[in-house]
Amino acid sequence: MHSLDSLLSLWEQYLPSLLLGCQLTLEVTGIGVAAGLILGVAIGSARAADVPVLRSLARGYVDLLRGTPLLVQIFFIFFALPILIQVNLRPLTAGTIAVALNAGAYFSEVVRSALLTIPTSQLQASQALGLSRLATMRHVVGPQAFLVALPGILNQVTISLKDTSLLAVISVNELTHRGEVIIAATFDALQIWAVVAILYLLMNAALTLFGGHLENRLRRYTA
């Protein structure tokens, strides 16, 4: 067991490195989730669209990405893609792309089911006023669907944040990987993994808190 002194010095020594890991974890999550959201809105709209070809393509995408493990997707993009097409991606780039593509599939399901909850009568009311399909999407259906989708989106963001830990396997220097490296040097698995877990917990707690606030604000008046 550690004395209090040695514990404090351990923290002093390694916390800065772990915090840097947190920063990269948040960056990968931020970029991955933002790109994934754009993808999810596109795919989710395609799945709700009236065009059969678009619908099947979107459906295929979702099935493929939900039906395979993220770890395999990461390996595929990092190791297999360079063989298939002549591009060599940096681990960070490959990993972020994998997180984005994966989150996109789940976001699209959230978006699709949110779109289905908006009654046709809202669409009709908007089109009856002369608004185009696009304007109806943007001003009437979109904002209402967003409110419905918000809890599902936030849920996927917390999942994606945890998913970024898989990037450790291709040596992206995010939180989990830094933990591994420190343990390799100190052999202090118990302490370091506990700290790593607490840091993930704190990041997600902050996210959930922020999400709750956002939801309350947006929901203030809508029935």
């Binding site: 009568s121 009311a125 006023l129 608004l131 304007a135 001003h139 009437v140 008046y221 029935a223």
Partner: peptide
């Protein structure tokens, strides 16, 4: 329509000005 179909995410002002502005 029978069931109003107001846009619930907009104020009365928003409901009344959406189409005049956009269309």
């Amino acid at each position: 329509f029978q069931d109003y179909n107001l846009f619930p995410h907009m104020t009365v002002l928003g409901n009344l000005t959406l189409a005049p502005i956009r269309v």
